[in-house]
Design a protein around this nucleic acid. Structure first.
Lengths: 115, 115
DNA sequence: ATAATATGCAACCAGGAGGTTGCCCTATGG
DNA sequence: CCATAGGGCAACCTCCTGGTTGCATATTAT
């Protein structure tokens, strides 16, 4: 019923996790998750970083489809895309499930846990 | 009711995501999520990597508490800890929630989405 | 037309990440 | 007691990452 862990490509997941493994990119993600499309210049405001740095981060997020950009005149607008995050959540659920199966299995042994 | 996004420390979350942003560490995580404690030597088996490399990865996972180690004789056994992953799931849920609020808000405008 | 705005591209740089090797220390099994 | 198995520590190397700067290009506003 639930897709097995083995059916997930680990490298793809790792790439998404890695994209989220940066404070700057997380904050960009938060700013975009409110649904407002924002230009690079807008996203750079209040960021202490250069526009180029922000651009690089956005491209990284874009490569794993957490974000996607469309050109509008002279500016390129970035928008949030929740799909990859949902994918990660499902992945984490599978790990949890695997873990919980173990717990119930252990419970049947009625072991004393001397942790 | 649900904790706001602003109450989460972004750098802490970024560190956890970063810890998961590596294929080797993801596979270690999978191997440990079955509940069996495993030594470094065991985890190194079939890994193509050196024991030292595996150790480094384990330490990274340990620093964010995804894994924890206990010394048992001459070997140190690593065990999985699901808490940080649950934390991440909650975090991702908050982002999704933020996103969905926007969707319903947009829906009230009855806009034509020409994406 | 011109100036200003928004971005792209490329080179460059410092530091960190992933990985290896060598050596030392501590348990454990004969 | 000695050989061996399991690890820790530290040095070292290479490559990627995050960031910057400089310059070129395309829109937009005046």
């Amino acid at each position: 019923m639930s897709p097995r862990l083995s059916s997930h490509k680990p490298q793809a997941k790792a790439q998404i996790f890695a994209a989220l493994g940066d404070e700057t990119r997380l904050s960009l993600l938060i700013r975009l998750s409110d649904g407002q499309r924002q230009s690079i210049a807008q996203l750079t405001e209040g960021s202490k970083l250069t526009r180029q740095a922000v651009t690089k981060h956005l491209r990284i997020l874009e490569r794993v489809r957490i974000v996607h950009s469309t050109r509008a005149g002279r500016e390129s607008l970035f928008a949030f895309n929740p799909e990859p995050l949902d994918e990660l959540k499902r992945y984490l659920d599978l790990v949890s499930e695997r873990w919980n199966q173990t717990l119930s299995r252990l419970k049947s042994f009625v072991e004393i846990n001397d942790e």
